[in-house]
Nucleic acid binder design. Structure first.
Lengths: 148, 148
DNA sequence: TATTGTTATACTCTATAACTATA
DNA sequence: TATAGTTATAGAGTATAACAATA
């Protein structure tokens, strides 16, 4: 089945649900920049700090792939986080080309607070009925099941 | 279950649903840049073109507010869209300070194609059951009801 | 030869501040 | 005085290309 066929087969419900989701994204566009600014970070710096999970060192290259951006960008972003003492470049065991990103203890504290602030449901979600909130949570769990 | 527990559970559903939504956003982070690149536009240029609805001239200032950014940025973004012949600055009736943004006929065609590409539901939504897709659409309709 | 991370470059987005022309 | 849009500036994100070190 071609990609074209795949999208032709797509239901109106899927497309309309996605369009509504997109509107929700757009309406919340300011959230990450706002929370980042509270910690004197750029949106991308806050995003990267959020992606680096505690006790899970990540090669620069892998981070670049997760960010959907060129590896050269990661150098600068990590430079600035390292200057702030929030992350560290560690040597990778077994391959001297690779640098592993690790969140420092300072970084962990800032990260915890950023994650907390970003987990606060915005108004469009908060005002849904308890039933809708639960249904939404369950549907999204199924959508993201294989681990996106 | 106490009243307190009841409300704690409610807000957990909201917060968890939002966290899942956030993961979905992040997983689709590359979509706008990718589609924009197909039309040789920057992500922000594509976003602005998408926001300018046909036959609805928009003052620069209003666009700045919608973008959650300073008005000075809009000048540059619109400059580049205007150089490409996709939008036009028209005089506003009644206030000579204001410039109204209008999508040109070329711009309308590009916009139509961008909107179409972006309305294609991504894999996490497309693979949901028909029931889930419909439920998702209805819940999101309620969430965005007053017009976000 | 291929891969990882870096540097250099050019472009875009961003906020801030100062400016102009209107109101 | 206040507002709409612009300019100038500096910092940050982005892709591309070229490079050193390592595999």
């Amino acid at each position: 089945m071609s990609v074209c066929d795949y999208y032709r087969r797509m239901s109106n419900d899927a497309s309309e649900a996605w369009t509504l989701l997109f509107r929700l994204f757009v309406s919340q566009r300011g959230r990450v920049p706002q929370v980042a600014a509270e910690f004197d970070l750029s949106p991308m710096q806050a995003h990267v700090l959020r992606m680096l999970e505690p006790d899970q060192p990540l090669p620069m290259r892998t981070l670049a792939r997760k960010l959907c951006c060129d590896a050269s960008n990661v150098t600068g972003i990590v430079d600035r986080l390292e200057e702030r003492g929030l992350v560290r470049r560690d040597a990778a065991p077994g391959d001297r080309r690779v640098k592993m990103l690790v969140v420092t203890s300072n970084g962990l504290e800032v990260r915890r607070r950023i994650v907390r602030r970003l987990s606060e449901a915005p108004e469009p979600i908060a005002r849904l009925s308890a039933t809708d909130q639960r249904a939404l949570r369950e549907i999204l769990n199924r959508a993201l099941e294989p681990g996106l």
